[in-house]
Design a protein around this nucleic acid. Structure first.
Lengths: 231, 231
DNA sequence: TAGATTGTTAATCGATTAACAATC
DNA sequence: TAGATTGTTAATCGATTAACAATC
């Protein structure tokens, strides 16, 4: 039995964590428009979510609302930011300066989400030394030493699938604890490192299936009697 | 009661749909290496998934395996591609030629996933007329007419959050049925259109929370007695 | 044949949703 | 005060996992 207090560092479902940025985004908009309190029903309506779910999600941050009033907008924003650590900046290294990598380097909005990419690396000698936006592309060999010295905890992988695991290994052995992986492969990493895949093709699959199904339905409907009564 | 046969056009959980591209990617690799049959346990091991889950997922495509052998690699690949409609090319329009939009335009791998971006649009007159990779950036006003004439069913939104809903509305009114949304907002679209958000910040939230939690644990551990026994 | 693997039914688990007392 | 909204406990729902007979 360890004495790391679970109420202090409790585990929250990924589903909840994924919704928190949506709340944050909405709340920031509301605040900008001068709204200083908001109910969970209001949030739910705007994000197409069940109000009870909103309430439960927000509860993980520790905020307490006022009956009949709701939650203070600023208070809620602060609570979510603190819960996600977005009140502090996390510095990250990015490896793989292709199209996608370059796009992320140029993405200036990450600073609202606690993230700052501080260096970019590539294995390809043709890319090393080039400048992309504000970044000089560094050789991959320099990553371990720099990561240690700068105490970098987050790595972003935007290399082709084949190279992704070896980059992950390098990151892990350099002290990186959290990996944001854009390559379409299952990466292995030992505790306490976590890997999160950005599965572009997963999203595409849902859209593609929707269209494929529609086409099929239409064909069927053309051949088969359909009446409009439901049930 | 409609006579659209549910066994032909059945509904599959999003979780399953999201895993199909992973299977596909692995299977293509295996095929390339000359493997012509594969068991669900093997797939599960490589993707860190329960073998029963793999079996159920693959069942939606209609493939039938052989006891003791597994499934034919090529057969499985074909089945998944057909199920997702990736055996045919879906043509898509992209709106918003910023960093991310440009990256997607330059992404040459989509053709393995049934997608072809055929035109790029932007509202900003400064960007219209420019060439990005193989694409001439067209003015947004041209989208409706072109979409109708080319029978475009998929739209990709890479504009800022504020502009996303109006772009979505334009797409919907131009006959587009599936929207891949990279802007961090909840978009509304009427049936039978579906919107899928690519929630970059959702993934980031999970990673950030992991790091924030780690830091907290470490602080706690420094102050509080911890012993290594579990349970 | 023996046993690896299939497909399917049942059990478990966790997340979402509903119900409701507490309260500003 | 009355009622909108909270926080929480219980019910529902769906997805994952386990169990097992069928079979090449």
């Amino acid at each position: 039995m360890t004495y790391v207090d679970e109420s202090e560092v409790k585990s929250v479902s990924q589903a909840t964590l994924r919704r928190l940025p949506k709340y944050l985004h909405l709340l920031r908009n509301l605040k900008r428009r001068g709204r200083d309190a908001v109910s969970c029903s209001f949030i739910g309506e705007h994000l197409s979510l069940d109000p009870t779910q909103v309430r439960k999600d927000l509860a993980v941050t520790g905020v307490i609302g006022k009956p009949k009033v709701g939650h203070g907008t600023s208070e809620l924003i602060d609570a979510i930011e603190q819960f996600l650590g977005w009140n502090n900046v996390t510095e990250a290294f990015l490896v793989g300066v292709g199209n996608l990598g370059a796009a992320l380097l140029g993405y200036d909005r990450f600073n609202h989400y606690g993230l700052k990419i501080v260096a970019a690396f590539d294995k390809d000698p043709a890319k090393v030394g080039k400048t992309i936006g504000d970044y000089d592309v560094l050789p991959l060999e320099k990553l371990p030493d720099l990561a240690r010295r700068m105490n970098i905890l987050m790595g972003i992988i935007t290399v082709p699938a084949e190279a992704a695991q070896s980059v992950a290994d390098l990151m892990v052995s350099s002290g990186i604890r959290a990996i944001w992986n854009f390559a379409p492969v299952n990466l292995q990493a030992p505790e306490p490192v976590i890997v999160q895949d950005e599965e572009l093709y997963a999203t595409l699959a849902i859209l593609s299936r929707h269209l494929a199904k529609n086409l099929k339905s239409e064909k069927l409907e053309r051949g088969i009697e359909v009446n409009g009564l439901d049930s």
